[in-house]
């Protein structure tokens, strides 16, 4: 029964990534290599982030929310954006369209994040006899994270790879990118600063990531039109 629960949670956590890969044209163009490379980049980024966190952050004894420390953490969080920039622009990809490239990068990024942050707790925790909602919520969080990563990659590819985009949309793209990039800091603020409960935080994450995904989809589509026209 506990193994059953573990599989359920694993399906919720990692299933959407697989579904996304197989349902979209990504599978037809065999973009797995790109995703794997991105995952490696993610690993490197995570390492750099860890080193930065360990160097610049004080170890707080209490669980209190310290604004200056959190600000620093948010800044370090922007290393993610740098990693994503590297993955989008510097990696030599096989000849795939920009359209598929950002999806592959976002997918690899989100999958690496899920494996790194959620697999071990899931394996240790969800197999135990004790039942908690935590791992189901964590799976939902992974879904939200997938959407966020895809939106960020989409916005990134708009910013860095597309040259002929409508001038009026540029500020909106940048604003959205900033919002998406600061989302982890916002959720951590909600969690630790405002002491929201986990279900509320996850609900918020799902809602915002869904919104951001829709917005960036529309933006991407809007930029697509002039080029195709």
């Amino acid at each position: 029964m506990t193994m059953f629960h573990f599989f359920n949670c694993a399906i919720l956590t990692f299933g959407p990534h697989a579904v996304y890969y197989s349902a979209t044209p990504l599978s037809e163009y065999d973009t797995l290599g790109t995703s794997v490379k991105t995952a490696v980049v993610y690993l490197g980024t995570a390492l750099v982030k860890l080193v930065c966190l360990a160097t610049f952050l004080k170890v707080s004894e209490s669980d209190n929310f310290d604004p200056s420390q959190e600000l620093l953490k948010a800044l370090i969080g922007f290393i993610d954006v740098a990693g994503l920039y590297f993955a989008l622009t510097q990696l030599t990809h096989r000849n795939i369209s920009q359209n598929h490239k950002f999806q592959a990068v976002g997918l690899g990024w989100a999958f690496a994040d899920s494996v790194l942050h959620r697999l071990a707790p899931l394996w240790v925790g969800a197999r135990g006899l004790e039942f908690t909602w935590e791992y189901i919520l964590q799976g939902l969080e992974a879904n939200a994270n997938l959407m966020l990563s895809l939106s960020l990659a989409a916005l990134g590819s708009l910013m860095w790879l597309r040259k002929n985009k409508p001038k009026t949309l540029i500020p909106i793209i940048y604003a959205c990118a900033v919002i998406v990039a600061t989302m982890p800091s916002i959720t951590s603020y909600l969690r630790w600063g405002l002491k929201w409960h986990l279900p509320e935080v996850v609900g918020f994450q799902l809602l915002t990531s869904l919104t951001m995904a829709l917005v960036s989809w529309q933006l991407f589509a809007a930029c697509q039109k002039p080029s195709s026209a």
Binding site: M1, F4, H5, N8, I11, L12, G15, P16, V19, Y20, S22, A23, G128, L129, E130, F131, T132, I136
Partner: peptide
Amino acid sequence: IYQVASVTFDLLLLLVLGSYLITLFS
């Protein structure tokens, strides 16, 4: 002392997840 979920709960959860993934796929 463990707080445990029932097998039916996990079955239900599996059903919900399955339909979610199918919906997502489509």
